[in-house]
Design a binder for these strands. Structure first.
Lengths: 247, 247
DNA sequence: ATATAGATCTCGTCA
DNA sequence: TGACGAGGTCTATAT
């Protein structure tokens, strides 16, 4: 494909605010929050309708370079290269793509008002625990969930059969040291604000497993591990569908 | 574009292991580590040479659905829909794309052996501190950097003018409570292993700024904040270029 | 605007 | 393989 033609098609597609994909050979420079260089190679460039720019190599799931939405995009023609420059003032980011050869170019205005419906997140896990406190223990009575309080951001908060505060931190996968540290922060905050010397505040990690080092920390701080698996997603999904069909 | 033709082109491109982009109208179901549904809409689907699948809506920088490399991909034809199914055994992930209309399809085998050269990361910041310990204070003598030791992963480790251990945690941006907590973990570990009752181990956050709550935590545990900006990237980049041109 | 935490995080690295 | 931490993280949410 001739660079001249590519330039014109790109320019028109940008003007029409279309989604664009370009198969091309290029080099890339990035400067802003960090600096990067990428030598000559064949990539796919995706430009979206909000001026998001993604540069993808032929493998790997993450873009090798990118610009976030709201960036400016300028085209120019430098000798035998097509140059695409993008600037983002908020991040002080600058991306330059020097295209030496365009294999193919596609562009179209796309309509998509739908947004993703996702279930099986940590939030769903704390929902499940609130609805089934026995997942923690028969002694546990939940009070609130996912609350941003002065004490911190606790997944589930409640009390035990002796009236002690209980803080539950949920993790969908094996909990590591940072999860225990996170729990510790909340427990200490509650402990401090609710008056020291009172009954101990209990800390619980609700997760399918706890890493070895993290287990040691749990013991050191006398926190507990409730072996809880994330909600059975297929079931939860059916629930969601049922409740939607009620309307 | 006829679905029959699209099916054949897709099939051949997959067989040839090409990078593919498809502008299309589709619905998407995902099931695995979580569950998601996405109703009918126009998107760009990118299939890479390692069978990575990305589904991009017309805006936003992150894919609305995706499958990681090494997934299987199967095509089929269900009434008036083209169905793409991808499975990843490792993650037990399953993605189904039902395509009702193909706007355009591009495919090409791409060659790209280059990898990104990135500078200006936290690693560079700890490099800078090791080379310029005055950034922390004239009292600081660094010993090691980015070391995975029995004491933990410490960004910079050293001692002060009175022989006390010093642990430095670097953050490129405003350090929050979790950064202080991270520092605390390392300090306590060193304190415990090196024998309690000895001189206090000093903890230092090296960052351009510290969030308000995190400042309180610093005070509580008598840790310090060294106001350090990440290395000037443009300068650092020039250095790198100069050193490369020496060869 | 700042702060906090999750993510189908991804990716590298080291034990 | 598991664990741990960084990321040009990105994204959503709350203050």
């Amino acid at each position: 494909m001739e660079l001249e033609d590519a330039l014109q098609e790109l320019d028109e597609a940008l003007r029409r605010n279309e989604v664009i994909t370009v198969f091309c050979s290029c080099t890339i420079s990035y400067s802003g929050r960090a600096e990067s260089e990428l030598g000559e190679g064949e990539r796919v460039i995706v430009i979206k309708q909000d001026n998001t720019v993604l540069v993808h190599q032929p493998t790997d799931s993450t873009p090798v370079n990118y610009m976030k939405d709201g960036s400016s995009i300028e085209l120019s023609h430098d000798d035998d290269r097509l140059v695409l420059e993008s600037r983002n003032l908020a991040d002080k980011d600058y991306l330059q793509v020097e295209i030496s050869d365009v294999v193919s170019l596609s562009a179209a205005k796309l309509q998509d008002g739908r947004s993703l419906q996702l279930v099986g997140t940590e939030e769903d896990m704390s929902d499940m625990i609130r609805d089934n406190p026995d997942e923690i223990g028969s002694w546990f009575t939940p009070v609130s969930r996912e609350e941003h309080t002065a004490y911190g951001f606790m997944d589930v908060f409640g009390y035990d059969d002796e009236g002690r505060f209980v803080i539950v931190e949920c993790k969908r996968y094996t909990a590591g040291v940072s999860a225990v540290q996170q729990l510790r922060r909340y427990v200490e905050k509650v402990q401090a604000l609710k008056g020291v010397g009172d009954a101990k505040t209990r800390g619980v990690i609700a997760a399918p497993d706890v890493a070895s080092n993290a287990k040691d920390m749990l013991q050191d701080w006398s926190y507990e591990h409730a072996r809880v698996k994330p909600p059975n997603r297929q079931e939860r999904f059916r629930e969601k569908q049922q409740s939607l069909s009620d309307f």
